[in-house]
């Protein structure tokens, strides 16, 4: 039973990590640039959720009604007004801008919300559990998170496969110049993609903010976990995100079960092992532009 409950909690933790990796994978898959402010945007979303819950008296999950469109707009503006300006100079300027943005967010949050650790409270949901088998109880929040990841991934798959704008996303990812010849404005597509990623980040920020407390400087460690997820799963691969999250979650939980101080170590080792054996990840989907 200990083995089973360890595996189950690893899978559920993997749900959080997959959610964390999903937004990063989306921006990398379409724009081919790395958003180094990803973790800080997640923390920003947590704080914004805190502000919304306090000001409007909503519960964290309900606050998503406000937060998702706000974060979508923020992402669209970030790409449309800032990052699109440096597109023609290659990948590096955009990466450096997001690196700077990370510091702006951290210090902005510090000024706005102090350095205290905060947490989002949704009644007793955070601690609620369901007993699946005698001796095997799982948390409701991790189940909701796993459900959210699966729903978001399915939604993205449907979007990419069956809609015109989804095909435009893929076409732009493959070859932005030729996409423009089809009448697609690559800058608009990039801004939509960043908006979509930030909408997912809003969900991530709320669910992670309910799971554990957060402070203004938690962004970088979240970015590292998100990176590990997409390195294991394969850069830009959506399905890889789920597998990457599961492998990271399972390796951390198994390591932690063997020795509590190995929790993070085994996660990093699993990532390194994948990097050595399959440098492009388990499901390399992003095809090199040539």
């Amino acid at each position: 039973m200990i083995v089973l409950s360890t595996l189950v909690s690893g899978v559920l933790l993997g749900g959080f990590y997959a959610l964390l990796g999903l937004g990063l994978s989306l921006t990398f898959g379409i724009m081919r640039t790395v958003n180094l402010a990803h973790g800080d945007l997640v923390v920003l979303a947590s704080f914004l959720a805190l502000a919304v819950t306090q000001m409007l008296g909503l519960s964290p999950l309900v606050s998503l009604i406000v937060l998702v469109p706000v974060m979508f707009g923020l992402g669209y503006a970030l790409q449309g007004l800032v990052l699109n300006r440096v597109l023609k100079d290659g990948m590096m300027p955009a990466v450096i801008i997001t690196f700077g943005l990370a510091f702006v967010i951290q210090n902005g949050l510090l000024m706005g919300f102090s350095a205290d650790r905060m947490v989002l409270r949704q009644g007793t949901l955070e601690t609620a559990g369901v007993t699946l088998l005698p001796g095997l109880t799982v948390g409701v929040l991790p189940l909701i998170t796993l459900g959210a990841v699966l729903a978001l991934m399915a939604g993205l798959q449907l979007l990419f496969r069956y809609t015109l704008i989804g095909r435009a996303f893929r076409a732009t990812s493959d070859d932005p110049q030729i996409a423009a010849l089809m009448g697609i404005d690559p800058k608009h597509v990039y801004a939509l993609a960043m908006g979509l990623a930030c909408a997912i980040i809003a969900v991530t920020g709320v669910l992670m903010g309910m799971r554990s407390n957060f402070s203004a400087f938690d962004g970088p460690i979240r970015l590292i976990f998100a990176f590990e997820v997409i390195i294991i799963g394969g850069m830009g691969s959506l399905n890889g995100v789920l597998v990457g999250g599961m492998i990271l979650g399972l390796s951390q939980v198994i390591g932690g079960a063997l020795n509590p101080s190995w929790f993070q170590l085994t996660g990093h080792l699993a990532t390194l092992a994948v990097l050595i054996v399959r440098p492009s990840g388990l499901f390399p989907e992003t095809i090199d532009r040539s």
């Binding site: 095909r167 893929r170 493959d174 089809m182 009448g183 697609i184 095809i287």
Partner: peptide, 25 residues
């Protein structure tokens, strides 16, 4: 419209989706 040198089809799209994206405008 242009047929570019080297054809440059969208690699991650099927033939039919490549054609469909041509009608994007």
């Amino acid at each position: 419209a242009m047929v570019p040198e080297g054809r440059r089809l969208f690699r991650s799209l099927t033939v039919e989706d490549n054609l469909r994206i041509g009608a994007y405008a």
